[in-house]
């Protein structure tokens, strides 16, 4: 089904809505992605929708966090399990923390890391799991692009950990509560979102601090451009896009604001090949914006009933954009 019927009612945007195939996810969409060419949605209620099939790797439990890794979906549930689900729908248990919630998750090249409370565990591609107790609960985990090294957000900064060594984690300090964490594709910069509606960044080489402020609410979604030069973020009435191409990152530079609307951006996803950003809002609207000239295309019209856009993902070729909302709406845009 498409939303194209009333297209003429929105003349101010060039619209792609007729190229969207909508379907019902039936539940809060946590994460979206593609495995080969099949759209995959992870639902908070516990189901994973792979194309037309639905599987429940956590049985009756809910899924709290999920990540895509190659052709697999890694999910962490409120049953304390970390599961790997294949495109076939088969799944295996990678970790089990009895009676705990899996609070954070990261995956890269077969390696998986998860956090339960203050304990962080990392399981390498061979299946060897190492654990460490942190001084506070990490909300965000991310693997560095090179080597087997994990970066973790924590209260008062972030920490870098080599799971296969006995060395204590290296601390990056900055006062405050740090939430989600991301690493630039070239591994030069680490960025966290903070409880205080700001971002904090460190240049890994010398731990130089970067402060990115001005958000009216918390940033809970990041996306790096394909060339690694730009970081798009949620949390404002526009997608805030910071320049990272220089050696000093965004210091002393203003960010770009894309897709300014009177609704809050809840999700962002850069196109895998072009400087084009998909932007999802808390009123369920989705726009596509070009970074160079801020030109906008409408992907999905606002609809308060369906809740905020909680997941956006492009396929590898950049021909399809998959989305899901808090209220359980979902769809795939196929670029004409």
């Amino acid at each position: 089904m498409s939303d194209a019927a009333n297209d003429s009612a929105a003349p101010d945007f060039t619209s792609l809505t007729e190229h969207v195939r909508s379907f019902a996810a039936e539940g809060h969409v946590l994460q979206a992605g593609f495995i080969k060419s099949e759209p995959v949605l992870v639902l908070a209620e516990g189901e994973i929708v792979i194309g037309e099939r639905r599987v429940a790797p956590h049985e009756d439990a809910g899924i709290l966090v999920a990540a895509f890794d190659g052709d697999c979906i890694i999910s962490g549930g409120d049953d304390g399990r970390v599961m790997r689900t294949l495109a076939s729908g088969e799944s295996e248990t990678l970790g089990h923390e009895k009676g705990k919630w899996i609070d954070a998750l990261a995956a890269k090249g077969g390696a998986v890391a998860w956090a339960t409370g203050k304990k962080v565990s990392a399981r390498d591609a061979k299946g060897v799991t190492k654990s460490i107790d942190m001084p506070s609960t990490p909300v965000g985990l991310c693997f560095l692009p090179k080597g087997y090294r994990l970066v973790m957000s924590q209260y008062g900064g972030a920490a870098l950990w080599f799971p296969n060594t006995d060395a204590a984690p290296e601390n990056l300090e900055w006062k405050g509560a740090h939430l989600d964490i991301t690493v630039s594709p070239d591994g030069r910069f680490i960025v966290t979102s903070m409880q205080e509606n700001a971002l904090h960044g460190w240049r890994l080489a010398d731990h130089k601090d970067m402060r990115m402020t001005g958000y009216p609410s918390k940033t809970r979604c990041f996306s790096w451009s394909h060339d690694g030069d730009w970081l798009a973020t949620s949390g404002a009435d526009a997608a805030i896009v910071w320049p990272f191409e220089d050696k000093d990152g965004p210091m002393g530079k203003a960010p770009k604001e894309l897709g300014v609307r009177s609704a809050k951006v809840s999700s962002v996803a850069f196109h895998p090949k072009a400087l084009v950003l998909a932007i999802g809002y808390d009123d369920s609207c989705i726009l596509m914006c070009r970074l160079t000239d801020a030109a906008e295309l409408l992907v999905r019209r606002a609809s308060r009933l369906e809740g905020k856009v909680t997941a956006l993902a492009w396929d590898k070729g950049g021909k399809h954009l998959l989305f899901g909302t808090e209220g359980g709406a979902a769809g795939v845009l196929t670029l004409p």
Binding site: H28, G62, W101, S136, Q195
Partner: peptide, 27 residues
Amino acid sequence: VFEMNNGCICCTVRGDLIRIIEGLMKR
């Protein structure tokens, strides 16, 4: 317990509670 970085010394919140409520609200 998190101290908010807003210059208000008694302004503390429970970080774990924020995280748990966020998780619960999805279900």
